[in-house]
Design a protein around this nucleic acid. Structure first.
Lengths: 261, 261
DNA sequence: CGCGGGCTTGAATCCGCTCAAGTGGGGTGG
DNA sequence: CCACCCCACTTGAGCGGATTCAAGCCCGCG
């Protein structure tokens, strides 16, 4: 089953001939090329889990939102990273005795490639392994930023960064600003930010009071001034600048980077 | 300059013929093979920094201890990862606008490879890029564990995990237990653990009082019962099980992993 | 209409931080 | 050799932010 065939909403790269879809262009389908690996799409309902088991797998999120999760013995949970449509995941099976899994936080579709079926290809195909290296490298940079967030930012900063990041990733631009439909529960957000659900809720109220975002409902907010929100955190939103249109943003980014030195 | 020639203490893999040293066997020299890249050893005194700039570089720590650091605009610092002798580093230049650098936390020696000088090799050499993928992947697993530490463990747990991890990495086994010469300042430990120096000091005192470790001086401690120390944290020490002799540890690890599910 | 789950808000507690004072060991200069 | 200094570390007091526990609210659903 080809991920592009799964739903007609996903455009094929070449009009339907070879494998690969636009959503995967930068990810699985783009990297693995047409034909050599067989992708498989999966529909995940909220709470559903995927584990790579002992095999090396690669996933591209097509729709929804998924988390890479882990759980401690006493039930404490940590969301290690959040992935939104278009992003590629290739997580290790476990990290130092902590088992990891992919969990859908909302109804999601995901495209799966099992690389283990052709292990030699990985060792002998330079393009493929260079691509995997690139993916792993991006993941490293992303986790570093999140690690700094958990290690050094306070609650307000974490939440503002999260809201700005989500606006960039899944917000839709409207005349009133960025409108974001948040498909996450407070608990999920808390587990991502290293806080607890009540604290997240309280901080959302403060954000609202400070007019940094308007919450129309528990699952939707609008950001009028994304930069004001972003500037509340001393780190750039992980997915910000790339998704932003060029304008003078590069200059702004350079300035921020300078400051952060 | 070949890293093995730098100091006679580092044994060559093949008795001196081709490049590569034992310390690098699993890292730079082992991966890059003799001859194709020229390693360069550097002596770093405490506080010295290395930056990859725009080029892709790979470092193997030969001696001492180095940190991958970042700094926020207001001076908050976070140590993203700590590397001890034998470990390989290939960090991105920056993570979401946060610039990263390698900083020696004690007198250190490090072996550097500049991969940019032969960019095509990376794209066309499958063995090389597969090796880089493996390195990046290990780094991802390591950072995930640290991220969970910062997100969900309290001070005591973080410190116990740190002390156990260091015992495994740089402790020497003596009849009295593991003796560890800690070449780090309290501030550095704090920046690694997302705490502050005073808190680290206070928790060290608690650890001492609880007889989990004896501090002979601010820079040396002895752990009698490594397992007792380790069990204070609900995560395995990042570098623990591998450095531990086999005995029944695999069984214990399996049990822990089960529980953590 | 009642139920339940997720969200919000409040009160009390606890943990880590800030600020500040005190201690100890290594190094320098007299 | 000793006195002194300096810096890192330790320890204490008070504060503030996040958690816990608990109550109340909102909304969808049976």
């Amino acid at each position: 089953m080809d991920c592009c065939l799964w739903e007609s909403g996903f455009e094929r790269m070449d009009g339907g001939q070879a494998g690969g879809c636009r959503r995967c262009e930068e990810g699985g389908c783009g990297l693995l090329g047409p034909g050599s690996f067989v992708p498989r799409t999966r529909q995940l309902s909220r709470g559903a889990r995927l584990e790579s088991g002992s095999s090396l797998k690669l996933w591209t999120v097509l729709d929804g939102i998924v988390a890479l999760c882990t759980l401690l013995a006493d039930g404490r949970r940590q969301v290690v990273c959040l992935s939104t449509p278009g992003e590629v995941l290739c997580p290790p099976e476990e990290a130092q005795g902590l088992s990891l899994w992919i969990e859908a936080l909302a109804e999601s579709q995901i495209c799966e490639f099992d690389l283990s079926v052709r292990v030699q290809s990985i060792a002998s195909d330079a393009t493929l392994s260079a691509g995997l290296f690139r993916i792993a490298r991006e993941q490293v940079a992303c986790v570093y930023a999140h690690l700094v967030t958990l290690g050094r930012l306070d609650g307000m900063e974490r939440v503002c960064l999260f809201l700005a990041d989500m606006a960039w990733r899944i917000g839709e631009r409207t005349p009133a600003g960025y409108r974001v439909r948040l498909p996450l529960a407070r608990e999920d957000i808390a587990d991502y930010l290293g806080l607890n659900a009540e604290t997240v809720s309280r901080i959302f109220s403060r954000v609202k009071k400070a007019r940094l975002a308007d919450f129309n409902s528990p699952t939707e907010y609008v950001v009028r001034d994304l930069e004001a929100l972003q500037s509340r955190a001393p780190i750039l939103a992980p997915h910000g600048p790339a998704a932003f249109d060029a304008e003078n943003l590069t200059g702004k980014m350079a300035r921020k980077m300078e400051v952060s030195l």
